[in-house]
Computed example of a mutant assay.
Amino acid sequence: MAAFLASAAGAVGFAVTYGLGGNTPWEGVCLAVAFAGLAVGLAVWGRRLVPGGGYVEEHEGFAPPPREQALTAAELTAPESPVRRRGLLAALALAVTAIGVAALFPLRSLLPFDRARPARARRDTPWGPGVRLVDGSGRPLRPQDVPAETMVGVFPEGNVDAGDAPAFAVRLDPGRFSRPPAGGQLDGLAVWSLLCTHAGCPVRLYLKGTGRVLCPCHQSSFDLLAGARPIAGPAARPLPGLPIEVGPDGFLRATGDFTAPPGAGFWSRP
């Protein structure tokens, strides 16, 4: 019974942890306790239900003798029989029910009414109107801080460590754009998401003079002069752009979020 109760406690712990915002290590521990308790309980119950030891029985017929049938019925209906222990059965039912209910919690993430996880989280990043562009040390950037044909990593002020927010700025010749950047450009200065649209790796390699960036993970290549569309590799979507402007203080700032969800594709995108 203790194993079944531990299983139920683990399932409840998983549901509570998930409901409070989620913590992957603790969710794993709770699930491990839930399933391990259920497995141990069933194993112990099975060992006690089936007699141990070695037995040899002469087969005189397929039907057991009447005396053996009576003894079996008496054993199964006796008050001390494991089959009739209501507390044990109740604990088993509690464990199975708790695990079943806990399994429903992750499904909330896939339902339309759950706006926090994960669909909206894939679309909303720390970027927004008025958020200044800063470098890795948190220093705000001015347009002149982005030299021509140079890739400069940029982040939203106050959220340098946000995993979905890294971007990069490049200043190109405005006359070379065959397709305008999705987020617009300021005298050739444009900003795109740093995350590859294939698997979310950082697109860190800029091929100077070509207007192209390369993802080192799976060799997806994007043409910044043609809307940052993929021209090689497994990526299927262009890099999302970030709309920018120069604020009254002379620093670069965003006028909104990325033009598309950054990073790898998911169930509603290629």
Rank of each mutant, 00 (worst) to 15 (best):
F35Q: 00
G37K: 00
G37E: 04
G37N: 06
L38T: 12
A39W: 11
A39Q: 10
V44Q: 12
G52W: 01
G54S: 11
V56W: 11
H59Y: 14
H59V: 15
E60S: 10
E60D: 09
G61Y: 10
G61A: 09
A63S: 14
P65W: 03
R67M: 10
R67N: 07
Q69W: 06
L71R: 15
L71Y: 05
T72Y: 05
A73M: 09
A74H: 09
T77H: 11
A78I: 06
A78E: 10
S81W: 07
P82A: 07
P82T: 10
V83N: 01
V83G: 04
L88K: 00
A90R: 08
L92R: 01
A93K: 02
L94K: 00
T97N: 02
A98W: 04
I99Q: 02
V101C: 08
A103D: 05
L107H: 13
R108A: 14
S109L: 12
R117E: 10
A119G: 05
R120Y: 06
R122L: 13
R123A: 15
R123P: 00
W127H: 07
G128P: 11
L133G: 02
V134N: 06
V134E: 01
D135C: 06
D135F: 07
G136Q: 03
S137L: 11
R142V: 04
V146Y: 00
P147Y: 10
P147E: 05
P147D: 07
A148F: 08
A148Q: 12
E149L: 05
M151A: 11
F155N: 00
F155K: 01
P156K: 06
E157F: 03
V160Q: 04
D161G: 02
A162M: 04
G163L: 14
D164T: 14
A165C: 10
F168C: 03
R171P: 01
D173Y: 05
R176P: 00
S178D: 14
